[in-house]
Design a protein around this nucleic acid. Structure first.
Lengths: 240, 240
DNA sequence: ACAATAGTGTCTATGAGACAATATAAA
DNA sequence: TTTATATTGTCTCATAGACACTATTGT
């Protein structure tokens, strides 16, 4: 066919779709991996839990749209922690109303990130992922959540992102509990401490200590410049 | 605001975008990592190299669209090798004509995949990635290609996808050259052989051998059921 | 015979995991 | 004192990398 009728150049007749972002915001709270969900107020799936999301604005980058949605749901001025693109979902009938291509994002936030009541009736709330995965989620959000958890578990192995779940200052035990909760395993505190403190640039000693319950005071650390962990931390059987 | 005017529920006024797929098809050919590119015939970027791509059809999944585009560009009945979603690019002005959200896919194909002349004037061709990265590519395709190469290099470490670059039967040397070309390093043939053959399910001996030039005949293998490599193969400094 | 590639065996340094031992707090 | 947690040290096993050596072909 002539160039003028090539699909990629036929701008007039392109099939329009709606572009949205969906957010999987994870945190470690009460010794459990939790995800930020909203309750849908309109059809379809009214009353069901769903991931926060919204349209991509015309003048907005995808990353910016995700950050904006996160801010809108949590009330934070700037999204702390970590935010990265996860995967895009665009099955023809994932939304029965119209063709929606949704770019899912994965956020890892410290617990101090408190969701707030939004302007409308929908309320964002932290929910343990076990509950979110067993409850019926709207659209294909169960699939998205599954993928996000899988990505998060993998990334803890070879990046320093576990610290994104902690506040600006944290102890080695805090960091270890992040791994234990996200991976669902028990880690030897002694080997973990040696591994983490011997990885250059992972954590930096602040010189301060904190006392939390019985036991020797723990040293406080902050995130170091390292982003990749070589060699990585390992768990028994990676699920991804 | 009331639920009826929430952005995510305001279906009438959603900002329409065009959904496309762009394909980064990689192969190992002539001891070089090569990428499938087309020459643009229309504006913008007429005459420049670009990644193959096209609109997502209304009844089509994203994965299906990517597979269709790959088939259209290569002439294969079924896309061999490996095809996975890479990342989605949606900067507001990445296409000056209209808002385009493009889902990029990464394909890894054996060399026998020959591009064909398409129906129109655009011709798909394999080009070494060094050349594609230095030449001006249309739109943000240089960024996409960079991300794809980075992903491919990473995936060779912890998956068995290197075999996707080989044909159905291959020697350990063939597989090693894939790693050497993609990573741009030299690997010790002896250690590589021991590592690969001792990883359960990576390669399966067919019992046949091939003679290629001087030297002892090499055993022929085919892909095993393993997808993840534990522990992974390692290179000096991961770039992602 | 010689060169070239395929494949096996050996040695060493490094890291993971098990676990003893010490430090310092609360009860 | 007892208990609990933090931190350091030691030991052993597995693996990566260096590299000697054997096997089997073409020239």
């Amino acid at each position: 066919m002539p160039p003028s009728t090539r699909p990629a150049d036929d701008l007039a007749g392109f099939p329009p779709v709606a572009a949205t972002v969906d957010l999987v915001a994870l945190t470690v709270r009460d010794d459990a991996l939790q995800v930020l969900v909203v309750t849908r107020t309109g059809d379809p799936h009214a009353g069901e839990l769903a991931l926060p999301g919204g349209f991509v604005h015309p003048d907005e980058d995808l990353d910016s749209a995700a950050a904006r949605v996160l801010v809108e749901e949590t009330g934070m001025r700037r999204p702390p922690g970590h935010l990265e693109q996860l995967k895009t979902y665009g099955a023809p009938n994932r939304d029965p109303r119209l063709r929606v291509v949704s770019v899912a994002y994965l956020a890892m936030a410290p617990t101090r990130l408190d969701p707030r009541v939004r302007g409308d009736a929908a309320v964002a709330a932290w929910v343990p992922v076990e509950r979110a995965l067993t409850a019926p989620l709207a659209f294909d959000h169960t699939t998205i959540l599954t993928d996000a958890i899988s990505r998060a578990r993998s990334k803890l192995e070879y990046t320093s992102l576990a610290a994104a779940f902690c506040g600006p200052e944290f102890t080695v035990s805090n960091l270890r509990r992040v791994y234990e909760v996200v991976w669902g395993v028990r880690l030897d505190p002694r080997n973990f401490h040696r591994k983490v403190s011997s990885t250059p640039g992972f954590i930096i000693d602040t010189g301060h200590t904190v006392i939390d319950g019985p036991g020797r005071p723990a040293a406080l650390y902050r995130r170091g410049p390292a982003t990749m962990l070589v060699p990585p931390l390992t768990r028994e059987q990676p699920d991804t």
